[in-house]
Amino acid sequence: MELFLNFLASGLVIGSIYGLIAIGFAVIFKTTGVLNFAQGEVMMLVAYVSWSLATELDLPLVLLIPLVVVAAAAIGALLERIFIRPMLGEPVFAIIMVTIGLAVTLRSVIVLIWGADAAAFDVPLKGGLIEIGPVVLFTEQLFAIVLFLVVALAIFLFFRFTRIGTAMRATAQDETTALLMGVDVKRISMLAWAIAAVVSGLAGIAFAMMISRAPDMWFLGLRAFPATILGGLDAPLGSGLGGLLIGVIGDLSEGYIGQGLKEISGFVVIIVILMVRPYGLFGQRELERV
């Protein structure tokens, strides 16, 4: 039982990281219909920038987080403005290809600027081990879970209750009509990229604090992608939950069945679930009035 709870906890930790990135995927897909294959790279870029901020400025976590949120939003908005906006009106497939190109470019640019070595992100958070009953976690790991919960709640409230969040949902459902209501659809797309960069960037920081900031972090994006598919591409919260599921299933299967299952167990689950619900666990089926 103790073992199970510890597997569960470590699954939730890595699942929180996946979940945050998956929310990033879903926010962009939901509002613009584009799959951003550079989400993992955007996350890595934000993590690197925050690492530099943290080491140069030597800020405490409470100051670092708001600063990083602003920086990440700027990065997301800028990337949208430069790479996605000119593609407006082009086929979605072409835009997705641009994001793949963007992914490769960002990876190289990061190595160019920061070098290929990993570095510890050990500035802000130091608390050692925390015991919750039989479960033992590092402070950084607990931070990841708390971060996920806070961000998921914020995303829920934003889409549900704010005017701009409602406008984003409206744009997702019918872009032309949103235009007719006076919504500036271009700004909505920029906002979606900014939000996705913030959310996944926070995941990047949490991950970097747990392990290190390293130029292979983008790989987390690939791991989180199945989580989005599982939860539903157009469901940010569902995607987040999908991340938790993938994380927990991965750690449990590796712990109980065998080494190497972490990588594939998530995909097995997805294949099974998509057979039953092709639009994901929480995705919206086309609404049809009979």
Partner: peptide
């Protein structure tokens, strides 16, 4: 100048009130 599009074009997944509120976006 406000345009009511052909075929209603509501935001189908949102509630009536949310739809109406979208008209007041600005």
């Amino acid at each position: 100048i406000v345009h009511v599009p052909e075929g209603r074009r509501l935001f189908p997944l949102m509630t009536v009130e949310e739809n109406l509120a979208m008209g007041g976006f600005l």
